[in-house]
Amino acid sequence: MLRIPCPCCGERDEAEFRYGGEVPGSIPQTDVGDEAWADYLFARDNPKGLVHERWCHSHGCGQWFHVVRDTVTHRIHAVYGVGEPRPVVDCSNESQADGGR
């Protein structure tokens, strides 16, 4: 069970939230070609380790926000609002030791 700290309501069970996936890069210009658009729309970093992702507290305040989570340990390292700059997170993260096979 993830316990997710909503910036508005505090820490709640994952069941109250909706997942919005990895935060994508910025929207490309319209004239950049299919390759760049395919990369923006479909490709993902899908990192083993720290991921920046979106969550919505759908059964609470309804707010979308960003979470920095380790995809191997599920530890949440930081939470930040939409439009806020990415926080600097200490990357000596535990999952480099390959916790999951």
Partner: peptide, 13 residues
């Protein structure tokens, strides 16, 4: 499970 994971263990919910 409804979120990215490499943990190779499932969540209880």
């Amino acid at each position: 499970d409804g979120y990215n994971s490499y943990a190779q263990r499932g969540g209880i919910p």
